[in-house]
């Protein structure tokens, strides 16, 4: 690892000033499960940082909170364990808890943060598809204040986000799920754990009586960024759920994604898995929507 100067700011403002001061030479550090690996392997997606700004002691970034009026707030510094174990997330935002519970091992979950997982901007980030399915917003803080961005617009490409060098992802806001909503996330990996998603699929269905009022499908590892599957969603909305409908929507989502071939799987294989998993996640989301 190249050497660097370590900063441990104790407020968000202080963290932002440090980033402002050091510009491209600085990188924010949260759990370290991605960044430290990249720094060790000299395989950072950016120049080796000469300043590391640790976000560990920034109180504004921590914690998970919820209110019936505002919905869910997940601090960027919340760990995957905190998200996976949060009673409110498990109850009301099931797919998000499921995504967090799949990130690496228990050790990884205890270290990795939601902000880190999103800012690393891997197409395979497990927390991203469920957050997209819940239409989460990124709250970004910089020298000129706060701005909000739909999470879909936050990801620009592999390893690229809408953050400027002096900005931080402070928190993720997730709207209150409407009554009658059920959600699910799962991923396909060759190994049962300690693996990177070859395909991840999140589904969220809101039922109005026997019809699907709103459908959200989001995919991981099959495009340059985690993505929604808008055509699949359109195929579902307003329809009565059935195996045939889900199969049709799964075909649509498999067609609209744009996977690449790499060591984890061919493009053809990934499309096939998108089809299988979309069907399964829709079925799971429906069952959950119906059982309240």
């Amino acid at each position: 690892m190249r050497t660097f100067e370590y900063h441990a700011p104790t407020s968000l403002n202080e963290a932002i000033s440090l980033l402002q001061e050091h510009g491209e030479a600085a990188r924010p550090l949260a759990g370290g499960t991605d960044l430290v690996v990249q720094m060790k392997e000299k395989a950072t997606k950016f120049a080796a940082p000469s300043h590391i700004v640790s976000l560990l002691r920034v109180p504004e970034l921590s914690g998970v909170s919820f209110s019936e009026s505002e919905g869910l707030r997940i601090g960027a510094g919340a760990t995957m364990s905190q998200v996976a174990d949060s009673p409110i997330i498990r109850e009301r935002y099931r797919a998000i808890a499921e995504g967090a519970a799949l990130v690496g091992s228990i050790q990884t979950m205890n270290m990795a943060t939601v902000g880190g997982n999103l800012c690393n901007a891997a197409p395979s980030a497990d927390i991203a598809p469920p957050l997209l399915a819940f239409e989460a917003e990124a709250v970004i803080v910089g020298p000129s204040g706060r701005r909000k961005l739909a999470l879909e617009e936050f990801f620009l490409g592999p390893g690229k986000t809408a953050l400027a060098a002096d900005e931080l992802l402070a928190e993720v806001r997730v709207p209150l799920p409407p009554p009658g909503m059920g959600s699910a996330y799962d991923r396909h990996t060759p190994r049962k754990q300690m693996d990177i998603a070859v395909v991840g699929v999140a589904a969220a269905l809101t039922m109005a009586g026997e019809r699907i009022e709103r459908a959200r499908v989001a995919l991981g590892a099959v495009a340059p960024t985690p993505v929604r599957a808008p055509q699949a969603e359109a195929a579902l909305e307003g329809q009565a759920p059935s195996d045939e409908l889900f199969a049709r929507a799964a075909d649509v989502s498999a067609a609209e994604c744009s996977p690449i071939a790499d060591l984890r799987g061919s493009a053809e294989f990934r499309r096939h898995i998108v089809r299988v998993m979309t069907k399964r996640m829709l079925r799971e989301a429906l069952d959950r929507a119906r059982s309240g």
Binding site: R191, K192, Q193, R264
Partner: peptide, 9 residues
């Protein structure tokens, strides 16, 4: 990570 020896799972 990518050379996948079996885990407990």
């Amino acid at each position: 990570l990518d050379y996948r020896m079996p885990t407990t799972r």
